[in-house]
C-alpha cells in the first residue's frame, strides 16, 4: 500500500503563503503599520528587527528545506535486506554542530539587541532639550499634559518634529499601553508607577495609535492620534490652545468626537464611533435632557462637557479636562445631531 503526500497541495500552500506576503507588502494604506521610518526610535528598533528577519528567513528556509528534502527522499523507500533501515542512534559531532550554529546566530542577534535596549531606555538628557509630556491613561482615553506650558489634551498628542519628546507615563485606573506603531514601540501606563519613553519624529503629519493593553470593555475604541508639527506649526498650535478663537466648528467637533475620547464610550450610528459604555448619541440634539438630569440646552451642555460629575454626581463619564476650544467645537457638533 502506497501512501503519497499530495504534493500539489503542498506546492499550492507554499504559493499561497508567498502570495499572502507579497500582497501584504503591496497594501498601500496601513496608517498604523510598524514598518515605518517616521521616527528615530523606530529606526533604532528596525536596526535590530531587520537583522532578526534576515536571520529568521535564512534559518526558516534552511531547516524547512532540510525537512522537505528528507520527506521526499526517504518516503516509502524500499526496505533493506533485513527489512529495516540501517539503525543510526545518533551522532555527537552533529549534535555539537547544530547547537553551535544556532548559538552563533543568537549572538549576532543578541549584541545589537543589548545596544538598542540601552539606547531606547535611556532618558533624554538636558542637552537634548526634550519636551516633557505626562501621559495619564484612563478608561478609555489618553490624557496628555504639557505641564510646563499649562496645556492639557485628550487623545491628541501634539509634538514638534525633530525634537526628543520625553513621555512620563502613568494611569489613573487600570493598566493601559500607549502604542503609535509608525512612531515606535509601546510602553505600559501603570497605576502607581511612572514609566518613561522617548520619541523623536522625523516627519510631520498625523499618526494613528491605540491602547495595546487590554483594559476593559472600551479597550477596542481607545484610540488616539499623534500630530507631528513643524516648529512653527507647533508654536501656532500651542498658541491656539492657550488663546482659543471663539465660536465652534461642527466639523472640528465631529473629528474630535470620532478620534478623541468620546468614541471610546459613545456610539453615533453611521460613523466610526461605536463605543458601548455610555449612551448612544445618534439623536442627541433631540433628547429632552442631558444625562437625564438637566434640560438639553447649550449652557447645560457646556457645563456638562466641562465637568460631568459636577452636574451629575456618580456619573460614569469622567472629567475629560476638555479645552474651551474643544468644548466649542463639540457643542456645535452635538447640537447638529437631530
Amino acid at each position: 500500500m502506497v501512501h503519497r503526500l499530495p504534493w500539489r497541495i503542498v506546492a499550492a500552500l507554499a504559493m499561497l503563503s508567498v502570495g499572502v506576503l507579497l500582497l501584504g507588502a503591496c497594501s498601500s494604506s496601513a496608517p498604523q503599520t510598524t514598518i515605518s521610518d517616521a521616527s528615530v526610535n523606530n529606526d533604532r528598533i528596525w536596526s535590530v528587527y531587520t537583522i532578526i528577519w534576515i536571520a529568521a528567513a535564512v534559518v526558516f528556509v534552511a531547516v524547512e528545506a532540510l525537512l522537505v528534502y528528507t520527506i521526499i527522499k526517504f518516503r516509502n523507500k524500499p526496505r533493506t535486506a533485513h527489512g529495516r533501515p540501517v539503525p543510526v542512534h545518533g551522532n555527537t559531532k552533529l549534535e555539537i554542530v547544530w547547537t553551535i550554529i544556532p548559538a552563533v546566530v543568537l549572538v549576532v542577534i543578541a549584541i545589537p539587541t543589548l545596544q538598542i535596549i540601552a539606547e531606547l531606555e535611556k532618558r533624554p538628557s538636558e542637552a537634548d532639550n526634550p519636551l516633557e509630556i505626562s501621559v495619564i491613561a484612563h478608561q478609555f482615553f489618553f490624557e496628555f499634559r504639557y505641564e510646563d506650558q499649562g496645556i492639557r489634551t485628550t487623545n491628541e498628542l501634539h509634538i514638534p518634529v525633530n525634537r526628543k519628546v520625553d513621555l512620563v507615563m502613568t494611569s489613573n485606573d487600570v493598566i493601559h499601553s500607549l502604542w503609535a506603531p509608525r512612531l515606535g514601540g509601546k510602553v505600559d501606563s501603570i497605576p502607581g508607577r511612572n514609566n518613561h519613553m522617548w520619541l523623536e519624529a522625523k516627519e510631520t503629519g498625523e499618526f494613528d495609535g491605540q491602547c495595546a493593553e487590554f483594559c476593559g470593555v472600551g479597550h477596542a475604541n481607545m484610540r488616539f492620534k499623534v500630530i507631528v508639527h513643524d516648529e512653527a506649526g507647533f508654536m501656532a498650535w500651542m498658541d491656539e490652545e492657550l488663546n482659543p478663537t471663539p465660536g465652534g466648528d461642527a466639523a472640528a467637533g465631529e473629528a474630535f468626537f470620532l478620534n478623541g475620547p468620546c468614541a471610546g464610550c459613545h456610539a453615533i450610528d453611521g460613523t466610526t464611533a461605536a463605543g458601548t459604555v455610555g449612551p448612544n448619541l445618534t439623536h442627541f440634539a433631540s433628547l429632552p435632557q442631558i444625562a437625564g438630569v438637566v434640560p438639553n440646552d447649550e449652557q447645560n451642555l457646556r457645563a456638562w462637557l466641562a465637568n460631568p460629575p459636577a452636574v451629575k454626581p456618580g456619573t460614569g463619564m469622567p472629567n475629560l479636562n476638555l479645552t474651551p476650544a474643544q468644548i466649542d467645537n463639540l457643542v456645535a457638533y452635538l447640537q447638529s445631531l437631530k
Binding site: 510598524t34 533604532r44 528598533i45 528587527y49 532578526i52 534559518v59 506603531p181 514601540g185 509601546k186
Partner: peptide, 23 residues
C-alpha cells in the same frame, strides 16, 4: 513549530517586542 519558534526568537528581543507585544 519551526515558524512559531522563529517568531518567538523575534520577540525575545525587547526592542522588537515593543512593536509586537499585544499585537
Amino acid at each position: 513549530f519551526i515558524i512559531g519558534g522563529l517568531s518567538g526568537v523575534m520577540h525575545a528581543s525587547p526592542p522588537v517586542d515593543s512593536q509586537q507585544q499585544d499585537s
